[in-house]
Design a protein around this nucleic acid. Structure first.
Length: 568
RNA sequence: UGCCCCGUGGUGUAAUGGUAACACAGAUGACUCUGGAUCAUUCGUUGGGGGUUCGAAUCCUCCCGGGGCAGCCA
């Protein structure tokens, strides 16, 4: 049932975008000998989220469509934040999304030796120097966006002295922070990134891959472009905040004198009612506001996977949001549309009663059980049919009965009729209540024998058809319903308010007494089904007693919900 | 307030000097043994001023608005 379409080869709806235009132009002018080589460069300091999915689909999609390649490269230049666990999860998530980096799995740390050699070149050219100022001093001298910086007193050290000090930095003669290697560019540049940016810092920290081999680590700016260059990347696609880094990216490559890829920036994906910052997501995980990186309420790929999203639905979503340079906030309804569209075509239907209300069919023979035929998926005839047992004692959804219904309520109420899906039309004759609490405990109904589905009078129309489960045959299950994690459309938008204050206290509801038709007993972990009239659900796990636990992926579109909301 | 980027319906994205389009969302209706799906209809937009042009969302210019940059983070 979990037949994930796990190759992202389908030619989904793909409007052009400015990046494709750049590539088209480069191909026309033969700028890179007709090559297209992109890369997806995550830092292994957290789990991938839906924003990364956009970048993955973009980079791998471009490579696929232009007959090029896309590398996976871990940008692991900061040993204090990075872990193997994240490397593993990132690879798993990309593979799940349906993309294949083949044998091109690289790490910035693969290039530490090469980067060191490049640094030597710049030092020898008099274009890099060891600065022995403190962090505070460097910050001070950098100036402000509106004010030029001033040059460090160490800026004019001799090449020999720089060479010697840099070697000593590498060999561990200094403590953290004693020196840095800086590029000698222009302390008065209006672009802060060009004010003698730091290339290396001393960090006596163990790296998840290089261990204790290094105690100097390259900064992002010093590592990224050169890594691109070494790999022969043609189009180095990154997000908008790196726009001001491009002159530096180009400067390093030009001054070392190596192959020059082209950096292109696009607007990252933002979704309302959630956050995308890895730092904040980490906080939710570490402080227990969610169950982990893969909590189904998280915007992580592992969260969506556990929630029941299909890879194709996320790919389609990522394609449909487009690529541009303007900041954007996408409404979650786009994402929800994307899963529903996919699951509607593929999901097995079953009947499930989440909040059971007992029904007795007073005129139905006591011991009779009928096997009724039900359609597995009305959108896909090839999925066939199944049998559903019907008997005198049934459960229906509490929401499907109202003792005192409003105008447009079409479902069951005293004296009214509804059709039980695939079964009979029934009529509510009597409402039984708990004498203490007044709570409705049971409904006595009669059924109309002639109205059996497919039978002679089955054409008789009633306003509504509701789902049901035979009490004696019901499979017990737990179900988790999810709502948005935050009540605020932009939880992190207001710098004054802690984003945690916008958490939705009702983002998770656990239902422990759900009744499912017998078909459910054959379900496996990660299987996705539609509970008719309710939504799409995914098997989270099955406990030792064999009891199923479901996560609700997304509700069905629900026009009644809108009507009843309007009435309130 | 130095530099860089960006302003197209409620949201996102197209239109690349020639009728402003597509999707989502909303509304209405048809159909329906899922108030689902499907189908039809509908709502609504080029931030503002000036300029170039037969013709401007598109080119120029000024203004306004939004975002980014002051980590030894990426």
């Amino acid at each position: 049932m979990s037949n994930d379409n796990n190759n992202a080869t389908e030619n989904e709806n793909k409007p052009s975008n400015f990046i494709r235009e750049i590539i088209d132009e480069d191909l026309k002018t033969n700028k890179y000998e007709g090559r297209v080589n992109t890369r997806f460069p995550p830092e292994p300091n957290g789990y991938l989220h839906i924003g990364h999915a956009k970048s993955i689909c973009l980079n791998f999609g471009l490579a696929r469509d232009y007959g090029g390649k896309c590398n996976l490269r871990f940008d692991d230049t900061n040993p204090t934040k990075e872990e193997q666990e994240y490397v593993d999860s990132i690879k798993a998530d990309i593979a799940w999304l349906g993309f294949d980096w083949e044998d091109r799995e690289y790490f910035a740390s693969d290039y530490f030796d090469q980067l060191f050699e490049y640094a030597l070149i710049l030092i020898k050219k008099g274009k890099a120097y060891v600065d022995s100022s403190t962090g505070d001093e460097i910050r001070e001298m950098r100036g402000m966006p509106t004010k030029p910086g001033i040059e460090s007193p160490y800026r004019d050290r001799s090449i020999d002295e720089n060479l010697e000090l840099f070697e000593k930095m590498k060999s561990g003669d200094f403590k953290d922070g004693e020196h840095v290697l800086r590029a000698k560019i222009d302390m008065t540049s209006p672009n802060m990134n060009m004010r003698d940016p730091i290339m290396y810092r001393i960090r006596h920290a163990s790296h998840h891959r290089t261990g204790d081999k290094w105690c100097i680590y390259p900064m992002y700016d010093w590592a990224h472009g050169q890594s691109d260059s070494v790999e022969g990347i043609t189009h180095s696609i990154c997000t908008l905040e790196f726009e001001n880094h491009r002159p530096l990216y180009d400067w390093f490559i030009e001054n070392i004198g190596i192959y020059a890829p082209q950096q292109i920036e696009f607007a990252r994906l933002n979704l309302n009612y959630t956050i995308m910052s890895k730092r904040k997501l980490l906080k939710l995980v570490e402080e227990g506001y969610v169950d982990g990186w893969d909590d189904p309420r998280m915007p992580t790929l592992s969260g969506y996977r556990r929630r029941g999203y299909t890879p194709a639905s996320i790919r389609n979503f990522a394609e449909s949001v487009g690529v541009a340079k303007r900041n954007n906030v996408i409404d979650v309804s786009h994402l929800e549309f994307s899963v529903r569209e996919d699951l509607n075509k593929s999901a097995q239907r079953i009947m499930a009663v989440l909040r059971p209300l007992k029904i007795v069919l007073t005129n139905y023979p006591d011991d009779q059980v009928e096997e009724l035929e039900a359609v597995n998926n009305p959108e896909d005839e090839s999925m066939g049919k199944r049998k559903v047992p019907f008997s005198k004692f049934l459960y229906i959804e509490k929401d499907d009965f109202m003792e005192d219904p409003p105008k447009k309520f079409f479902r069951l109420s005293p004296g009214k009729e509804v059709r039980l899906r695939y079964a009979y039309i029934i009529k509510c004759e009597e409402v039984l209540k708990d004498p203490e609490t007044g709570e409705i405990t049971e409904l006595h109904c009669t059924y109309d024998v002639d109205t059996k589905s497919g039978g002679p009078a089955s054409g008789r129309k009633v306003k509504a058809t509701i789902h049901w489960v035979s009490a004696e045959h019901a499979v017990e299950a737990d179900v988790r319903l999810y709502d948005r994690l935050f009540i605020h459309p932009d939880p992190a938008g207001d710098k004054e308010t802690d984003f945690l204050e916008h958490l939705n206290p009702n983002s998770l509801e656990h239902l422990g007494n759900c009744k499912l038709e017998p078909f459910a007993s054959g379900l496996q972990e990660a299987d996705r089904v539609q509970f008719e009239r309710l939504g799409y659900f995914c098997v989270d796990s099955i406990n030792d007693e064999g009891k199923l636990l479901f996560n609700r992926t997304v509700t069905l579109r629900d026009s009644w919900a809108k009507i009843s909301k309007k009435n309130n």
